[in-house]
Computed example of a mutant assay.
Amino acid sequence: MNFKTLNRIILSLLLVGAFFSAFNYISPWLIIGFIIGYLSFILIISTNVQLDFFLKAFHNNPFEEDGRIALTFDDGPVENTLKILEVLDKYHVKASFFCIGKNIEQNPEIFKLILEKGHFIGNHTWSHTRKMGFISSEKMVEEIKKCDEICYRIGGVRPATFRPPFGIINPKTKRALDITRHKVIGWNVRSYDAIISSENMILRRIIRKIKPGDVILLHDTNKLTVEILEQLLLFLRSNNYRPVRVDNLFNIDAYY
């Protein structure tokens, strides 16, 4: 069932409910409760890309048998990205970076270094606005295309993949992606490194359920992530996991 059909059904039920409520057949509180429940449902499905409600995204590879996993970093490039790159070099690991366009503009040399070292680049919009869930499809297309353009201008690549800021996917985002044709990369292991201040707690969150084919979400904007990354790579090495780029994990094209 698509979202438009679902909305029509919900609206029809509300109209019927309002009719019966007007004649005191049912309590108006039941209608209010139904509305609150539906709005809560919309909030949940719109802010959880992993649910695949509006479109199918790549969150993990359940068929992986060789111990491969993907380390992904959001919101760079920033100065701290350089330290992330040093750790990745130390362990001879390739990772995936979902970059914000305006940060690429501010840190072009760091962006080029990510590419020179053989890491993957994905689109993470131009501005990463906190209003992401409310902007129009046209504005979303602009955000995605503008990020693509600076990726090409600075690094000579046009990302074929997109990661939605905050994991938000709604009908407007879907319409935008129908136009831009980007594949959506989600995650199934969220570190909360942008929220939790304890390195040990973040590391435990990552490793407690890790399995082959997982996609781990980290942020290269967080200084704590550098130390967490080193500890994580030591764990992965000792447990026979092999970090790879997301395009290799899912066998998809990285760039157009």
Rank of each mutant, 00 (worst) to 15 (best):
S238R: 10
Q106P: 01
K102V: 03
F19C: 12
N239G: 07
E65P: 06
I31W: 09
K112N: 00
K112T: 06
I35E: 04
I195C: 04
N240D: 07
E79P: 07
Y241R: 00
M201D: 06
P243W: 12
M201L: 14
I10Q: 13
M140P: 05
I31P: 02
N61M: 10
I252S: 13
H219W: 08
P212H: 13
L234N: 13
F19W: 15
K174I: 02
R204T: 04
N251H: 13
D89A: 09
N103R: 02
A254C: 14
I32P: 08
L51A: 13
H219F: 06
K83I: 02
L43H: 15
D75P: 02
I210Y: 13
P108T: 13
E142L: 06
E65Y: 09
N188R: 00
A95R: 05
D253N: 14
I144H: 04
N123D: 09
N248D: 15
H119V: 07
P171T: 10
H128V: 08
N188I: 03
L234Y: 06
E79K: 15
H128G: 11
L30M: 10
F111Q: 02
T221H: 08
L233R: 00
G133F: 06
N60G: 07
V189H: 06
D75Q: 01
P77E: 00
H182S: 08
W29G: 00
Q50D: 05
I10C: 07
L30V: 13
I44Y: 15
D247N: 15
F166Y: 05
A95D: 08
T225D: 07
G133I: 05
G17P: 07
T161I: 15
I121S: 09
K4S: 04
C99P: 00
V189Y: 04
F134L: 10
L236C: 11
P243R: 11
D253T: 03
V93S: 12
V157A: 01
I196L: 02
S21T: 15
L113V: 01
G17R: 13
E116L: 12
K4G: 04
L15A: 13
I150E: 08
F41K: 06
L11A: 11
I114C: 06
T47Q: 05
V226Q: 02
K223L: 00
A160H: 11
L71C: 11
P28V: 11
H128Q: 02
F53R: 11
S27K: 11
T180E: 06
L14V: 15
L13F: 12
Y91F: 12
